[in-house]
Amino acid sequence: MSDLTTPATRPADTASGPERGRRIDGKAFAVSLRKQIAADVVAFHAEYGVTPGLAVVLVGNDPASEIYVRNKALETHHVGMRSFMHMLPETTTEAALLTLIGRLNADPEIHGILVQLPLPNGIDARRITNAIDPKKDVDGLGEVNAGRLSLGLPGLIPCTPLGCLMLLQSELGNLRGLNAVVVGASNLVGKPMALLLLNEGCTVSIVHIDTINPQALTRTADILVVATGVSGLIRHDWVKPGATVIDVGITRVPTASGKTKLVGDVAFDEVAPIAGRITPVPGGVGPMTIACLLQNTLTAARLSLSESA
């Protein structure tokens, strides 16, 4: 990872010049990443005779989740991996789901397991997540991988924060010494994102629902990552000039024409002229999530070989 310049000068450099308002093209980055993964899968199979396999489990018939899961399966095939789909009815019990996970844990052809969230009422998502073998936990949400991340140890990292980090490193190079603020403290994005940035040498703050005067914190950020699910929360006066803004939020809102559109947690039109770099919605962080899921599956396949050696 290259160092662009010293930490003391980089924030000022990003606040001026032609970089102002630069869109970070997550879609193009994800395409490039998937191409690299496909090449790595070919090389992996040639060396070890193993094709990485990803099992995705969906409980219930939520249409949006079904589309998302099928897209994951398609992308898995496109990079040369094997996809195993398990579409379970809404009436599936927690015990039945745990039995399935036990079988997938024991299956040597399965290297990654993902249980699509949210789960129906009556199923303990935390218990299900922790039942997945940590070496196959490609969502990185189990307690073992979360603990390894908190200690700065190698492990499987949640896909969306990993994608955000890749975009930041691509844009800024070495992140050491930069002030980073994460808005949102969820286990899915906010907390792991903060830990990743801390492990990269950033000075990290987290803004959450009980934070007093959050704008005062966000205006100090050289890196601002927003993951709240509140559309348009971040306005122009929340952002330091020249900051790099990563918008994880995605909400479908109605338009004047009666149709709908996707928007993020950041008021893009207000913030883009102030930010040095910014991810759009759609086309920013979203495409990175599935690409990083595929990357984690390949990583998990490599881990399975080291465990069996």
Rank of each mutant, 00 (worst) to 15 (best):
C159R: 08
A291P: 01
T220L: 15
E66M: 10
K135N: 08
G229M: 14
H111G: 07
L305S: 15
R22V: 09
T5F: 14
L119Y: 06
W238C: 07
H45V: 11
N130G: 09
I278Y: 03
G232W: 05
S308V: 12
A28C: 06
T76L: 01
A30I: 07
I123G: 00
R22Q: 09
G102V: 08
G122T: 05
G284L: 00
N71Q: 03
A38W: 01
V263I: 05
P52W: 02
N187P: 07
N187Y: 12
G21N: 05
G60R: 07
T203V: 08
A216Y: 15
V285S: 08
L165W: 14
V225W: 02
I128Y: 02
R22W: 02
G152F: 14
R20T: 03
N179K: 13
D237I: 04
D222V: 13
V226Q: 11
G242W: 08
F84E: 04
I157Q: 10
L98T: 03
T203C: 14
A46E: 02
I290F: 10
N121D: 13
M1S: 06
E19G: 10
P280K: 02
C164G: 12
M288Q: 03
A291V: 10
V271N: 14
P18E: 13
E270G: 13
H78I: 04
A194M: 11
E200I: 11
D40K: 08
A300R: 11
L196F: 12
N199S: 11
E200H: 15
E94M: 09
V183D: 09
V248I: 06
V239R: 11
L262S: 04
A12Y: 14
M193S: 00
D3I: 13
L195R: 15
E47L: 08
D222E: 14
L262F: 00
V239M: 10
D62Y: 07
K35Y: 10
A301F: 03
T203L: 13
T244I: 15
P154F: 11
L114W: 00
S83I: 00
G60L: 12
R82C: 05
H111I: 14
A28D: 06
V271L: 14
S205P: 15
A39R: 01
T228M: 06
A43R: 11
N213T: 14
H77C: 01
R127K: 05
G249M: 00
Y48C: 01
Q116E: 02
L151G: 01
G249Y: 02
A30H: 01
D124F: 03
L178Q: 13
V245E: 01
P108Y: 03
G26N: 12
L168S: 15
L141C: 03
A73Y: 06
S186P: 09
K259Y: 02
A291I: 10
V281D: 02
V56P: 04
Q169K: 15
F268Y: 07
T51E: 10
A125G: 04
R252M: 09
T92I: 09
A272F: 09
G17N: 12
I128H: 08
